[in-house]
């Protein structure tokens, strides 16, 4: 199935929860969907006979610009039917909230923790959402464009004195 066909089917089934289809300016054709509905949509794509998206290849947080919203990108693949789809959700910078897919794809567990660790995106329904790379007492989310590094961490200077 092509991405275009998958998009057509999704918008028929989920209506305004499926926001747009992006083809230009992206590496893979991408379906933008609603952040709260992502778990439902992914479950549908996984269970439906015609799609059989049995594997989540990657899940990544993204911050393009200080002014813009944060986003999360999902790359799904069907190892049976050999087709791909890329999904994307946007969420506000002030209160980033996205439905978790960790119970649908086990892969997502650590990926979502990473996106939480570095972008501060809250995945609602995640079984164990805590930092994965940085220490628990770290402050801030370093891959955000508006991140300002602290001067010290546990008494160790972070930036070199000029």
């Amino acid at each position: 199935m092509t991405e275009q066909e998958i998009y057509a089917d999704l918008s028929k089934k989920f209506g305004d929860k499926v926001i747009e289809f992006m083809e230009e300016g992206t590496l893979n054709p991408t379906v933008v969907v609603d952040a709260a509905a992502i778990a439902k949509i992914v479950t549908y794509l996984k269970d439906d006979e015609r799609f059989q998206f049995d594997s989540l290849m990657n899940l990544a947080g993204h911050d393009g610009d200080v002014e813009a919203d944060l986003s999360v990108i999902y790359h799904l693949v069907s190892t049976e039917l050999k087709h791909y789809i890329t999904l994307k959700v946007f969420t506000s910078r002030v209160e980033p909230k996205v439905a978790s897919v960790a119970v649908i794809y086990r892969t997502a567990n650590w990926h979502e923790r990473e996106a939480f660790d570095l972008y501060g995106i809250n995945f609602e329904g995640h079984p164990d959402l805590k930092r994965i790379l940085l220490e628990d007492d770290w402050e801030g989310y370093p891959l955000r464009k508006d991140y300002v590094p602290a001067e010290f961490y546990r008494g160790m200077r972070i930036e070199k004195v000029k």
């Binding site: 370093p142 160790m156 930036e159 070199k160």
Partner: peptide, 11 residues
């Protein structure tokens, strides 16, 4: 990482 390395000890 000596610049912009938010997570690296500088020496």
């Amino acid at each position: 990482y000596w610049q912009h390395g938010y997570h690296v000890l500088k020496g």
